[in-house]
Amino acid sequence: MTTTTEVCTRERIDPRGPRFGGAITTVVLAVALITMGTPVGSVLLTWQVIVFALGAFVGLWAQPYGWVFRAFVAPRISAPVELEAAAPPRFAQLVGFCFVAFALAAIFLGGTLIATVAVAIALAAAFLNAAFNFCLGCEVFLLAKRLSFSG
C-alpha cells in the first residue's frame, strides 16, 4: 500500500477522521433519540450541539471527536493513503449544527415531535457519513444553490 507524503494540516486532513467522528455522532444521536424528552436526551443533544459548533465555527481541529481520532486512533492505524480538503466535512458539521440546534430549541419550546424529526435527519446523515463516506450536507449544497438563485 502506498502512503501519502503529504502531512496533515488544518486544511488537509485524514479522511478517516470525519468518518470516525460520524460513527460517534451516530451513537450519540441514536441514544439522544431513544431518550428524547428525558434529561439524558437533552444533555446528549446539548453536547452534540457544542461538538458541531466547534467543528463548524472554530475548525475540525477543535472538534472533540476529531481530537480523539488524532490522539488515540490515528497513531494506531496506518498512515492515510491520501488526504482530503477540510472544507466539505466542516460544511457537514455546520449542517449538523443547524439540525441539532433546531431540535434542542424545539424541545425547550415543547415541540418534541419536530425535534424528533430533526434529530432523525441528523442521525441519518451521520450514519451515511460513517458507513458509506457519503456527505449528505455536501450533496444538498449544490441543490440548494440551484434553487436559491433560480427564477
Binding site: I34, A120, A124, F127
Partner: peptide, 21 residues
C-alpha cells in the same frame, strides 16, 4: 418508539447508501 425510529433510520439509510454506491 425511539428504538423503532432509530432502527427504521438505519435500515432506510443503509438501503439508500447501497443504492447510491
Amino acid at each position: 418508539t425511539g428504538v423503532s425510529i432509530v432502527l427504521a433510520i438505519v435500515i432506510l439509510a443503509t438501503a439508500f447508501g447501497l443504492w447510491h454506491r
